[in-house]
Amino acid sequence: MDVVRTSEELLHKHRKERKELQGKIQFLKKSVTKGDKKKKKEVTEEIIRLELELEKLQNEELLQLEQEVAVCEECTVEDSGTLQPALRVSKAQRRRDKKATREKEREAMIMAQEIQNIHGPRNVEIQKIKQMLKERNLMIQEIPSDGNCLYCAVDDQLKLHGDAGLGIDKLRKMTSQYLKEHRSDFLPFLSNVDTGDLLTDEQYEDYCNEVANTSAWGGEVELRALSHVLKCCIEVMQAMGPSVLVGEEYRDKRQAILTFHRHMYGLGEHYNSVKPYLEEETEDIEGS
């Protein structure tokens, strides 16, 4: 029965240690002054170190206990001469402990990745764009990365400037129709991804249909078509190089501003919208 008591005591000890660590982590997080990126980085690294150390220690203690239990099972014999298997940590508890361990490891990996990203191209790009926007009293309006980012960002800009939003599906169909009606203007800028040759008429038609009916990513060709369809001057801000103006002839009629990100997501390039700058929201925008 000593093993049972030891098991319960160890689990209680581990829960207490994790609770105490959470309290310490909250204290560390609160010690970071808003905007102090150096301190935030140091605290994040310290939190990861503390969590990994506790995880390693508790896993070693659990392993040691299991070994002791195994030994007891082999040699526990009551006075009656019958073999009495010693009780140990239940399978359900082990599953819960393993699940908690995997979750903590996952969180530690995420935090480690965040530290790595601080000086990576993604974060450098985000900070550069945010600074450029701030100088114009603007900030990023995040758009989902689902293949529709260009159309969603443009639609958001329409609504921001008081126009009725047209919706992604309608914008896609309008873009597709404009491309079909102005084949000679856009065909020279499109090529077969496999051969590098210009698209055939059939391939161009398929391309236009994909614009209308799928979540295919939109780029410069679709951006130019949208500017004509909406009679809108679209400014595309980017971290490297000057802003690109598309449909500059419509500047006096309607304007929109997008941000272009080369490194925001692993799947490729991305467009976001913008909105008026709000101080209290800036800490939450890191480009997820």
Rank of each mutant, 00 (worst) to 15 (best):
K104V: 04
V77R: 14
S80N: 14
A92L: 14
Q64I: 03
E60T: 10
K40Y: 03
G81P: 02
I47A: 05
R49V: 02
T44W: 02
K30D: 12
L63A: 07
V32R: 00
A100D: 15
K41T: 11
M111H: 12
E66L: 08
V77A: 05
K39M: 09
E105V: 12
S31V: 03
E61F: 00
S80W: 06
Q84P: 01
K99G: 05
E42M: 11
R96M: 10
R49Q: 11
K38G: 04
E45F: 02
K39W: 02
T76A: 07
S31M: 07
E78F: 03
K98A: 04
L57Q: 15
Q58V: 01
E105H: 15
S90V: 01
T101D: 11
Q58Y: 02
E105Q: 15
Q84D: 06
K91H: 07
L57V: 08
I47R: 02
E74P: 00
M109Q: 13
K34C: 02
A70Q: 14
K98E: 10
K40G: 02
Q84M: 06
M111C: 05
R49F: 09
A86N: 08
Q93Y: 08
V77C: 05
F27Y: 11
T44G: 03
A108I: 15
R94S: 06
K34H: 09
E105R: 15
K24H: 09
N59V: 00
E78C: 05
E46C: 01
Q58K: 07
N59K: 14
K39Y: 01
F27G: 05
T76D: 07
L87Y: 12
Q84T: 11
T76M: 10
C75Q: 12
K104E: 11
A100I: 04
Q93E: 12
K30F: 06
K39L: 09
R88D: 08
V43T: 04
V43C: 01
Q26T: 09
R49S: 03
R95Q: 12
K104I: 05
V89Q: 04
E74R: 14
Q64M: 06
A92Y: 13
S90M: 06
S90C: 02
M109S: 10
D79K: 12
D97I: 13
C72K: 15
Q67S: 04
V69K: 14
R94A: 05
K40N: 07
E42C: 03
E46M: 06
G35Q: 03
T82Y: 13
V43S: 00
E107L: 11
D36Q: 04
D97V: 08
V89W: 04
T82R: 14
L57A: 10
F27D: 13
S90A: 06
I25R: 01
E60N: 12
V69S: 10
E51K: 15
K56L: 06
L87F: 10
R96L: 10
L65V: 01
S31H: 10
V89N: 07
V32D: 00
T76R: 14
V71P: 04
